[in-house]
């Protein structure tokens, strides 16, 4: 397993975990698919009912487990399927981003985006952009907990 952890080689590909709300962003991701747009496979999406469901703990866990970037995507402010969930997430996650920075971790590794169900093109663009950005930034060496990988 430890060989697989060797991320300093030229073949390193970043891992981006994206939490997407079911109603807008995940559907936007579906639309990117139905429209046959492309974005890097580095991005793996986890579906949650609402961006308001996203506990910062999930983001931290992703970084600890070796994700190089985390992108949260929700409905545009005002368009939340649950009326106010994305307002909650906006407040929580912007505070969380500052905390990440305060803790000395690159805040660029964590982004929040609003992508509607009709924005398949935006979904593909954001995922591509995030991947490019993380590629330039290099691997997440700081928060990853290598002990966990060796346990498995």
């Amino acid at each position: 397993m430890s060989a697989a952890l060797n991320d300093n080689t030229a073949g390193w590909e970043p891992l981006i975990v994206s939490f997407c709300c079911n109603w807008c962003s995940y559907a936007g991701g579906d639309l990117a698919g139905t429209s046959r747009m492309t974005y890097p496979a580095n991005v793996k999406v986890i579906r949650v009912p609402c961006s308001g469901r996203i506990n910062p703990m999930f983001v931290l866990r992703a970084f600890q487990r070796g994700a190089d970037g985390v992108l949260v995507a929700g409905c545009h402010p005002g368009d939340c399927h649950y009326t106010s969930g994305n307002y909650q997430s906006r407040r929580r996650l912007s505070a969380f981003k500052r905390l990440v920075e305060f803790a000395g971790f690159e805040p660029e590794r964590f982004e929040v985006r609003w992508i509607s169900s009709s924005e398949g093109d935006k979904f593909a663009e954001e995922m591509t952009e995030m991947t490019e950005k993380i590629k330039a930034l290099g691997p997440n060496g700081k928060m990853r907990d290598a002990r966990w990988q060796s346990v498995i």
Partner: peptide, 21 residues
Amino acid sequence: NLKGFSNEQILAEVDAICLQR
């Protein structure tokens, strides 16, 4: 906790996705 999307379930997904390398 949220049934169907519990903390444990979402964290299990995170773990599983991050395990791939």
